[in-house]
């Protein structure tokens, strides 16, 4: 038995080593291919194997293109590209203009979004229409398109004024601020010590799939509800002073955050797109508003936990 385990461990170690070496080789070849003068040095000399030479030149070319592309993407944030719609029935012979938006947070590029445009009407050359996109629905893409890329309405013939640059800018702003809000909420969770770490896969089977029941108290049995509330209160008061945040939940757009404390106190805060806490309501277990805390919550979303703890 033990022998098997040792062998298994050996195999996994060797596999990991192979993967690491592969990555290292890819890295080295990239560095080599990115040498500034490589293309020119590959050019003139007659060589023994013409095939090898052509292969090398092609690889250097690919690498050069990739480098240029990446530099533009990393520095500009919004780049455009052209693709061909493979659909033989596509409008405008399948010419598609893509706009790519990079979102970088904390020193790394975390996501790339694309919007693909086509020209519905080949007459008006500059009127673009959104064809496909990968923007999540919590971003107001349609509203932005209505504003900056209006389509010609009933009185056709007059090409509407479209502003692709402003559209790209405002869309990027929406996307980046959304990711920043998501990151801010992750930070809040870490600060409050309620990190939702995914459990190891072995426990998956045991985990109940049904989450919080949202209408647990909508039942009409008033008396029962009160009884339970009272019961919870006494339990909590016995715990004494150790009141802390039990959970922080946010909606998908990270605009509304629900904070629950261990003593049944509940706070709902509304976050503007730029990360300011606009409105906040905190209520105790008995339903009374706690205005001091609500006021403390207003301000930037960063540091919310500290302000609420103070």
């Amino acid at each position: 038995m033990a022998e098997m385990e040792i062998l298994d461990a050996d195999i996994t170690r060797i596999r990991a080593k192979i993967a690491a070496l592969h990555a290292h080789r890819a890295n080295l070849s990239t560095i080599l291919l990115s040498q500034p003068h490589l293309p020119s040095r590959l050019q003139p000399r007659p060589v023994l194997h013409e095939g090898n030479h052509r292969d090398a030149a092609a690889r250097a070319e690919v690498q050069l293109k990739r480098n240029t592309e990446n530099v533009y993407r990393a520095c500009a944030g919004i780049t455009s590209f052209k693709v061909k719609d493979p659909d033989p029935y596509a409008v405008d012979n399948g010419n598609v203009l893509g706009v790519r938006i990079e979102v970088s947070i904390g020193g790394r590029f975390i996501e790339t979004y694309s919007v693909l445009f086509n020209r519905q009407d080949t007459q008006s050359k500059h009127v673009l229409k959104i064809h496909k996109h990968t923007i999540p629905p919590c971003i107001p893409l349609q509203q932005l398109a209505n504003k900056w890329l209006p389509m010609s309405t009933k009185d056709a013939g007059v090409a509407p004024e479209q502003n692709l640059v402003r559209f790209g800018k405002s869309l990027r702003k929406e996307l980046v601020s959304w990711h920043l809000r998501l990151a801010a909420i992750r930070t809040l969770r870490a600060e409050a010590g309620v990190d939702e770490k995914p459990k190891p896969a072995t426990e998956e089977a045991q985990k109940p799939v049904i989450g919080i029941v949202l209408n647990a108290f909508v039942s009409d049995d008033e008396s029962e509800e009160e009884d339970e509330d009272a019961g919870e209160d006494t339990v909590q008061s016995r715990h004494g002073g150790s009141i802390r945040i039990a959970s922080i939940e946010a909606d998908a757009a990270a605009r509304e955050v629900l904070i629950t404390w261990t003593n049944q106190r509940i706070g709902v805060i509304k976050v503007a797109k730029d990360g300011t806490v606009e409105k906040a309501v905190v209520r105790g277990a008995d339903g009374t508003a706690q205005s001091a805390m609500s006021r403390a919550a207003l301000g930037r979303i960063e540091g919310l936990v500290q302000r609420l703890a103070a």
Binding site: V62, R73, G98
Partner: peptide, 22 residues
């Protein structure tokens, strides 16, 4: 459909991913 390549990194790699050979 075919546009699914834009969802993941199969069309646009990470902007700092320079490795072409893999």
């Amino acid at each position: 459909g075919g546009w699914s390549v834009f969802q993941d990194h199969s069309f646009s790699q990470n902007a700092l991913d320079f490795i072409t050979s893999q």
